[in-house]
Simulated scan of single mutants.
Amino acid sequence: MKKNYIKTARQPEVIRTIQKDLQYTTEIHQDVVEVAQFLVKNNRNFIKFNELIKILTNICYHGFSALNRLQTLGEEYTGVLQIDNKTDNLPHKLLQVISIVLEFGGEAILINVLKEYEKKVNESDELLPEARRTLLQLIAFIKSSIPYIKALSRSFFYLKNSGQLQIAKKLTGIHYVLVRFWLNDHHNISGYKFLGIVTVLQVVFSLLLKLKERRGDSKLRLEESTRENAKGNARYSRVSSNEDNKKCTLCLESRNDLSLTTCGHIFCWYCICDWLKYKSDCPICREHLTPSSVIYLQNYY
């Protein structure tokens, strides 16, 4: 039974808290990046570690506050506090640490686990073709579901406030409450409810479009498979060569969100954008580049 003097922080306080903490962690991350860039000589390797640095920065910032029983700067700014749903007291330190790790590193951990499992499935000689195809489809489904799950979680927060915007806090049973609870009386949250409805509709339409695209892709794959089987091993070798050419030279993986430089080289969009934060030239030919000169390619395969 929740104590009547405890009032759950509503959407405005929770969102402002997260935005304020994001402002501080972004500044800390930029400082750490400058130091790491000075120490790491190979900028190509540095791009791979940039995301890890961001995750560790967030974990250290929030973990320091949790372990010392302090509010974060964002929580102090908006006058909110984290408590345990079950006890209505401060969460256990271990529970807060788990929540922080899940919040900032959970998605990256899940994606890496799925990539490793996908690699093992592809390399396994014991699996039947149908079982391999089913497992790969399941992995692809889980990967593609992540953005929709996050969007639905946000929409639930907008529609029915629980003091929990982050999925990690829902899983660990931690939510925000107001310290200065009298500020909760005059906030109009009808706009957030409307935003929740719009978010749900967006997810529904996105899923419908995705299903339509998948049906079209399935037909194309079937036609391509038929043509490739008819052409034999020579065709297979050419396709393998083309797949190698489709790898990004920065992350050494298959290119995603293709982007083109003015000198004619193709990279992943996020890879070349991260590169240009620290270098102003093409990673391959060293021609001078600016972020505004990079072209995002659409409908290019």
Results as ranks from 00 to 15, higher is better:
residue 93 K to H: 14
residue 130 E to N: 06
residue 118 E to S: 10
residue 278 Y to L: 08
residue 131 A to S: 13
residue 183 L to Y: 10
residue 169 K to R: 06
residue 149 I to P: 03
residue 198 V to K: 12
residue 301 Y to G: 11
residue 60 C to M: 14
residue 176 Y to M: 04
residue 193 K to M: 11
residue 269 W to M: 07
residue 226 T to W: 15
residue 134 T to E: 09
residue 77 Y to E: 08
residue 260 L to P: 02
residue 102 L to H: 01
residue 29 H to F: 14
residue 36 A to R: 00
residue 9 A to Q: 00
residue 118 E to Q: 13
residue 249 T to M: 10
residue 74 G to E: 01
residue 99 S to P: 03
residue 210 K to T: 14
residue 123 E to V: 05
residue 140 A to C: 09
residue 242 N to H: 09
residue 271 C to L: 01
residue 103 E to R: 09
residue 207 L to I: 10
residue 144 S to E: 14
residue 240 S to T: 14
residue 76 E to I: 07
residue 274 D to V: 02
residue 286 R to F: 15
residue 193 K to F: 06
residue 284 I to A: 11
residue 129 P to D: 06
residue 88 D to L: 11
residue 250 L to N: 04
residue 286 R to A: 07
residue 107 E to M: 02
residue 79 G to S: 07
residue 296 Y to N: 10
residue 54 K to S: 10
residue 80 V to H: 01
residue 29 H to R: 14
residue 18 I to P: 02
residue 144 S to N: 13
residue 301 Y to Q: 11
residue 33 V to Q: 08
residue 238 R to S: 15
residue 37 Q to N: 12
residue 64 F to P: 00
residue 243 E to I: 08
residue 44 R to Q: 13
residue 297 L to E: 01
residue 239 V to D: 08
residue 87 T to C: 13
residue 50 N to H: 07
residue 158 Y to S: 00
residue 226 T to Y: 09
residue 115 K to P: 01
residue 270 Y to I: 15
residue 289 L to V: 05
residue 181 F to M: 10
residue 73 L to A: 02
residue 121 V to L: 04
residue 97 V to R: 00
residue 98 I to D: 01
residue 67 L to K: 07
residue 117 Y to F: 14
residue 141 F to E: 10
residue 233 N to K: 07
residue 73 L to C: 05
residue 280 S to C: 11
residue 21 D to M: 02
residue 98 I to G: 03
residue 299 N to F: 12
residue 275 W to T: 00
residue 110 L to Q: 00
residue 157 F to Y: 14
residue 50 N to K: 12
residue 125 D to R: 12
residue 49 F to P: 00
residue 108 A to M: 10
residue 159 L to C: 13
residue 190 S to D: 14
residue 54 K to L: 12
residue 138 L to M: 06
residue 132 R to L: 04
residue 131 A to E: 15
residue 173 G to Q: 00
residue 187 H to C: 03
residue 184 N to Q: 07
residue 225 S to L: 14
residue 154 R to L: 09
residue 21 D to N: 06
residue 84 D to V: 04
residue 83 I to Q: 01
residue 115 K to V: 09
residue 23 Q to S: 12
residue 67 L to G: 01
residue 296 Y to F: 15
residue 183 L to K: 12
residue 191 G to A: 09
residue 214 R to K: 12
residue 87 T to K: 11
residue 128 L to W: 08
residue 83 I to L: 05
residue 139 I to T: 04
residue 185 D to P: 04
